[in-house]
Nucleic acid binder design. Structure first.
Length: 875
DNA sequence: CTGGCCTGT
DNA sequence: CCTGGACAGGCCAGT
């Protein structure tokens, strides 16, 4: 029989630790779960590594303990437990029940004492003991048979205290930890100790006199008059502190070691609790996942060809792809599923099947899919124009809740209660372990995905209708997916030589700047390392530290700009950063993405990712190509039409977010400004500074512009003060005057937060939703963040709704008028086309008109445009 | 793999 | 008393 191993956990301390270490997560019904989650991940890890045979979680019993009779102020002045944590204790108890782990608490005693008593008993029986806590006090229990694990940040990072480790770290024995605490006290438990004695002094003293008692016997010999005086005047207090810090290893517990046998969790109970708590990553990672999630048999067949009879009028279709890069990756095969059958056809066989290809292009055959954009783009590589997409589970789920954490079919399905499908990571592995399994496994996986789509379609459509979001989904997002896949597949041509040339130029310039920096600094170092740079600037050159990060000195641009007058090195570093970014991200990064066969870049627009409804762009990101600074803007010279005779044409909405705000809040002043076509920032300046138009200085306009941005982002005085480099008071004053001039905006901001708190979510003009459980948080940061989000999301999201609508209208107009013009990119408030020269005149009228009419607001929507031989010239 | 930094709207 | 701008993606260094 293997040696018995006893695991003792300090329930309260670990729950506290987890609560403060992790952000305030919530499950689907809005219950906070971060403490339970952190506890669980820690527990999982320890169970796996230690495989204990006996376990117990000890809790503190009540407010008063025997220590209070020694010292009434014990643990006094403590913040009361935040309600977000208290509410989690019942779940923690349930969790431990599901694990079948014994729990224990004892009147008048703390968890420490229970653990101390049991560990002593266990040691006497020669058991191996592991104590787990977030509280370093417990390290006094370390011995040859007992190791104390203290969790560090993130809960799964553990420091193991053996007597050796304690010796190394403090130069003390475990027992002396008590003396150390007696001397230095403990603010969190309100143990006084000796005022003025901290960790360093305590250790120094204890190395000379091993205990507090011996120290006081020899107190006359202590060096340092001040220290000696502090010690003598606080003798009683020191001894009492030691007493308080001492764990009672003889507490009158009524539980015995024999009762602590641990035999593994109740898997079903644990799994269902994890589901209730929305512990999705744990469910995916866990070993019992496979048996718990795919219990149902699925019968499917792998076909060489498909007959017309096998293709129904409505089926779930899934194109199984090797990875997310659908413009280039391997395509494994196609799954076809309905309520009666499930087929899988390897991709090459599918492409050889005329009946299947016809069916895919037949708009009267309904396809239920997940990520139809990817499927359409993947098929377009073989010239197949997918038609008849009736349902897209990815988009439907995203509309129901944009916060779903992943686009994996398994994740989405589980979100809606369907578990009969594995995750991609599970089937293919991830990271270095990624590999393609046998065809049968791929076929089954693809069929299960299609089956999930087929099963969930009615439920999701019903949810969309209940939320009055069906139209948003069906009339906006679904048709947009088809348009985006065409834009991506079309791609944008890039002048490789131009980029290479700019790259050479940059290399030379960077070299020069680098040498300048080294010679000023007097040494070579890695300028790209914030850590090394920090040492040079703030230690070697002694520049003042303006801001710190978690890990050291901040060297961010706003900090460096403040330091610019202090030292000539700064401007070189700023220049180096700027050019280095261009080189690595935009020259080298873009070159890597050019497809050899067509000299084009094919980005992927993520349509189901942002929490506001915006698109994003990856591999590469074409929504953040430099424009602000001239050096960077030149990158745009490399973006050209696919035909040298054509031109690029760009149109962007003017102030779309502020117009949306004007529409939604109905503020008369703001509406008038737009209706009269005023310069909106100048107008704001006139109102805020109470001056006439001709009196508005450029500084006033700049400040007003920052205020307008602040309004859109969900204003805070602090944010504005940072932006304008003014005091918080001044910023608050600006905001107040803004609200006085635009009272409708103020009302809107107040009401939207209130409304969001009531119903739990905010909506956009087209009924896109975002849930904001943190509005009720007692954590100031989280709550403030949620409040700003409540103000910002309807604005940003409605603007996103509008441009999406414009894209659909634009695609229809181009088709209807039989134009050759191609829509290529969307950059949030901007659309980019390529067009033959002879169509430019048409676009000049058509594009602003379509964009302007995309949505009717109570202010005009205006789109400006420009065109030229490169993207750079569309300004 | 995370954090710092920088790019865009 | 202090907290702290909205939404994204990519690169690099350092763990």
């Amino acid at each position: 029989m293997t040696k018995e191993k006893l695991l003792l956990l300090d329930g309260n301390s670990l729950a506290y630790r987890a609560f403060f270490a992790l952000p305030l997560l919530t499950n689907d019904s809005g219950i906070h779960t971060n403490a339970v989650y952190g506890f669980t991940t820690m527990l999982q890890k320890i169970l796996e590594e230690e495989k204990p045979t006996k376990m117990l979680v000890a809790f503190d019993a009540g407010k008063t303990t025997f220590r209070h009779s020694t010292y009434g102020e014990y643990k006094g002045g403590r913040q009361k437990t935040p309600p977000e944590l208290s509410e989690q204790f019942p779940y923690l108890r349930k969790l431990l029940d599901a694990y079948c782990i014994k729990q224990y608490e004892l009147e008048m005693y703390e968890a420490d004492d229970i653990i101390g008593t049991l560990s002593k008993q266990a040691e006497e029986q020669k058991l191996q003991v592991i104590v787990v806590s977030g509280d370093k006090d417990l390290t006094q229990l370390a011995s040859d048979n007992t190791t104390v694990y203290i969790t560090r940040k993130g809960m799964t990072d553990i420091e193991k205290y053996t007597p050796d480790h304690i010796q190394e770290k403090y130069g003390l024995t475990p027992e002396q930890i008590i003396d150390m605490k007696g001397l230095m006290g403990d603010a969190s438990d309100n143990i006084p100790g000796v005022p003025g004695v901290g960790e360093k002094t305590a250790i120094k003293l204890l190395k000379q006199y091993p205990t507090i008692e011996e120290l006081y016997e020899n107190v006359e010999q202590v060096s340092g008059a001040k220290l000696k005086e502090k010690l003598t005047t606080n003798e009683e207090q020191a001894k009492m502190s030691k007493q308080l810090a001492t764990i009672d290893r003889q507490s009158p517990i009524t539980i015995t070691l024999d009762e602590l046998v641990y035999d593994g969790p109740n898997v079903d109970e644990l799994f269902s609790l994890w589901q209730d708590l929305s512990f999705k990553s744990l469910i995916e990672k866990s070993e019992f996942q496979s048996e718990a999630t795919t219990t149902k048999e699925l019968t499917f067949s792998i076909l060489e060809d498909v007959s017309a009879e096998q293709l129904q009028d409505a089926m779930a279709v899934h194109i199984e792809l090797a990875d997310e890069h659908y413009h280039t990756c391997d395509r494994f095969g196609i799954a076809l599923v309905d309520d009666k059958q499930a087929y899988y056809i390897p991709y090459d066989k599918a492409m050889a099947s005329i009946s299947l290809k016809e069916w895919l292009e037949d708009a009267s055959k309904q396809k239920f899919m997940v990520d139809s954009k990817a499927a359409q783009a993947a098929l377009l590589r073989d010239g197949i124009k997918l038609a008849g997409v009736e349902f897209d589970m990815l988009l439907a789920a995203y509309i129901v809740n944009p916060a779903i954490p992943s686009d994996d079919v398994a994740t989405i399905s589980k979100e809606f209660g369907y578990t009969d499908v594995l995750s991609n990571d599970n089937v293919y592995g991830k990271g270095a372990k990624k590999a393609t399994p046998a065809i049968e496994a791929v076929a089954e996986h693809a069929c299960r995905k299609a089956n999930a789509v087929f099963s969930l379609q009615p439920k999701l459509e019903q949810l969309l209708r209940e939320n009055e979001q069906f139209e948003l989904y069906k009339q906006l997002e679904l048709p947009l997916a088809a348009i985006l896949s065409e834009m991506e597949s079309e791609g944008i041509t890039v002048d490789r030589e131009r980029l290479v040339e700019m790259g050479h130029d940059l290399t030379t310039k960077l070299k020069t700047i680098e040498e300048d920096i080294y010679s000023i600094a007097g040494q070579a170092f890695n300028i790209n390392s914030p850590k090394q740079l920090g040492v040079i600037l703030f230690e070697k050159l002694g520049l003042p530290v303006i801001k710190k990060t978690k890990t050291g000195y901040s060297t961010a641009a706003d900090v460096l700009e403040k330091l610019e007058p202090e030292h000539e090195i700064i401007r070189h570093i700023l220049q180096y950063r700027q050019l280095g970014k261009l080189q690595s991200t935009y020259i080298e990064g873009l070159l890597k993405e050019i497809h050899e066969e067509d000299q084009k870049i094919h980005t992927r627009f993520q349509q189901a990712l942002t929490s506001t409804g915006r698109l994003s762009s990856t591999d590469p990101n074409l929504q953040n190509i430099p424009v602000r600074l001239e050096e960077g803007r030149k990158i745009r010279q490399a973006f050209v039409p696919s035909n040298p005779e054509w031109l690029l044409f760009a149109a962007d909405y003017s102030q779309i977010e502020l117009r949306v705000l004007a529409h939604m809040c109905g503020d008369e002043n703001l509406i008038n400004a737009f209706q009269n076509g005023l310069d909106i920032h100048t107008n704001t300046a006139m109102n805020v500074f109470h001056v006439a138009e001709e009196e508005v200085t450029s500084d006033m306009r700049r400040a007003a512009k920052a205020v307008n941005f602040g309004i859109v982002y969900g204003i805070s005085d602090y944010g504005l003060s940072q932006n304008l480099d003014i005091t918080r008071k001044e910023a608050a004053d600006f905001i107040e005057r803004y609200f006085a001039s635009f009272p409708g905006v103020q009302d809107y901001m107040k009401n939207i937060v209130e409304e969001a708190k009531q119903q739990g979510y905010v909506t956009t003009m087209l009924n896109r939703r975002r849930y904001l459980p943190d509005l009720k948080s007692s954590n100031f940061n989280l709550r403030s963040f949620a409040e700003r989000t409540a103000m910002n999301t309807p604005i940003q999201g409605s603007a996103a709704d509008i441009i999406k609508k414009a894209m659909i209208d634009m695609a229809a107009a181009l088709k209807e008028q039989n134009l050759q013009t191609k829509m290529l990119l969307q950059v949030h408030d901007e659309l980019i086309f390529e067009a033959p020269k002879e169509e430019i005149a048409i676009l000049e009228k058509l594009v602003p008109e379509v964009m302007g009419k995309a949505f009717e607001l109570n202010v005009p929507l205006r789109a400006d445009f420009a065109f030229g031989p490169t993207w750079y010239d569309t300004k």
